[in-house]
Write a protein that binds this DNA or RNA. Sequence first.
DNA 1: ACTATACGTAGGTTTTTTCCTACATAACAA
DNA 2: TTGTTATGTAGGAAAAAACCTACGTATAGT
Lengths: 110, 110
Amino acid sequence: MTADHVFTALASPARRELLRLLLEEGGQPAGRLAERFDMSRPSVSEHLRVLKDAGLVSESRQGRERHYRLEAAPLMEIRDWLSPYERFWREKLANLTDLLDEMEDHGQDS
Amino acid sequence: MTADHVFTALASPARRELLRLLLEEGGQPAGRLAERFDMSRPSVSEHLRVLKDAGLVSESRQGRERHYRLEAAPLMEIRDWLSPYERFWREKLANLTDLLDEMEDHGQDS
DNA sequence: ACTATACGTAGGTTTTTTCCTACATAACAA
DNA sequence: TTGTTATGTAGGAAAAAACCTACGTATAGT
């Protein structure tokens, strides 16, 4: 729910893989997701819980299955967190290209 | 150096705070950074090492100080990782606004 | 009602992370 | 040289994370 939870959730490769599966293949029941991992089903279940606590997936019961689907909104918080760093990166890149242009100007006249 | 390292580095609030300080106040020696934390200096030093392994900071020796500065490039990998999810998010949002428009059309004629 | 299926939860072990207090190293200063 | 400052490294304790194997619960099917 907080940005902290989101960052923590994204730190695990298994959880990032879960998000990828939900993105590329759409929402799925827990069992079908678990099949794709070289890991016990309860462990996958726990990863899903972490993702859910971070608001990155939602769960809906359908019969005896639990359908999980991607909730991308919290990732937009990450994007926002990232943006000042992106600005910083761009400025640095701009300075570099300016420098290169200047070197070129000095290297060849006219 | 890998995306995995970057995600792991970002998972810690202390390390994100280090990045923020380096972004907002510019590069600084290790000791000055450590002062800002309610944590022992060696612990901060270790966090800096994790950030360095992820390529998020660079270190340069200046006399007996070690100057750390922000390296934002690896964060651009995170941004790239994020982008397909952003697309997903936008589509969902578009569907929602379409639905709302449709409801409005039916609610009031012309 | 009974069995099978789809899950989450409990409890415990192993691994990883985080943090600390010494201690080592290297540079500057007198 | 001798002392002081800046900082990383070692070693270890404590907390957190990641797994696993039972086990519990609820729904579906017969």
